[in-house]
Computed example of a mutant assay.
Amino acid sequence: MKKKVHMIFTALLTAMTLTACGEDAALTQFKKSMDDFCTSISEIDSSINNIDAQSENATADLLSYLDALDSTFQDFAELDFPDEFDYLENLADESSEYMTEAVKSYHEAYGNGAYNEYIAEYAKQNYSRAYKRIQIIISFLHGEEPTDADLTIEYEND
């Protein structure tokens, strides 16, 4: 969870950095959308972390928050990225797809009043993949190249 909080603060810093780039309307709208996205996932993450695991409503609360997170990621995937960041839209789409699969799997893992650890592990992997893509997007928005052994960056020649 600390990585997510770090990611959110990084995203907010990115949004502030983008503001300094000028008064481009598309960039300004993108900045606001990024701020909204980061605020939303931060609030949902905080709510998830504050669930009382001993509560009889814990599972229902968790699944409800995950549904909200899925919706937030879907909205993020619908963002119109400015031209200079257009190459990141596919990652946003993938992130949303992974989150949708994770949430669907979490519902299945906790379904029928039982817990299926194998499906929950699959859900966790997809959840991690969704956030990994967000971290990559934020790195590129900062002008950094992510250092990830699983990431291959291809450059186009002009």
Rank of each mutant, 00 (worst) to 15 (best):
F85Y: 15
D67K: 06
I44F: 03
A53N: 12
D93H: 09
F73P: 00
M34V: 11
L91S: 08
G22L: 01
I44W: 02
Q29L: 12
E84G: 07
A26E: 07
D24T: 01
L18S: 00
S71K: 04
D35L: 04
K31V: 01
S71W: 03
E23M: 04
Y98A: 06
T28Q: 04
A92T: 05
E56F: 11
L27R: 07
K31G: 01
E43C: 08
Q74W: 08
E89F: 10
A77I: 00
T72H: 00
E94K: 04
D70C: 13
L91K: 11
Y65F: 13
T19D: 10
D24C: 03
N90I: 13
F76K: 00
I44E: 01
F30N: 03
D80K: 13
L62N: 04
P82M: 12
L79S: 14
N50W: 09
S55M: 06
Y87W: 09
Y87L: 09
L62Q: 04
D45S: 14
I51E: 03
T39P: 08
A53R: 15
D24S: 04
N57C: 14
S64W: 05
D93C: 13
T19C: 07
A26K: 08
A20N: 08
D80W: 14
F37P: 00
L79C: 11
E23S: 05
F37A: 00
K32A: 13
F37G: 00
T59D: 11
D80G: 14
S64G: 07
D45K: 01
S47I: 13
L62F: 11
I41G: 00
D67G: 04
D61E: 12
F76L: 09
D24G: 00
N57E: 09
E94W: 03
I41K: 02
S55F: 05
D35I: 07
S33R: 11
S55Q: 05
M99I: 06
L18P: 03
I51P: 00
T72P: 00
L69I: 05
M34Q: 10
S71M: 07
L79D: 13
A53S: 15
I41T: 02
K32H: 10
A25I: 15
D86Q: 15
Q74S: 09
F30Y: 15
S33K: 07
D45A: 10
E56M: 10
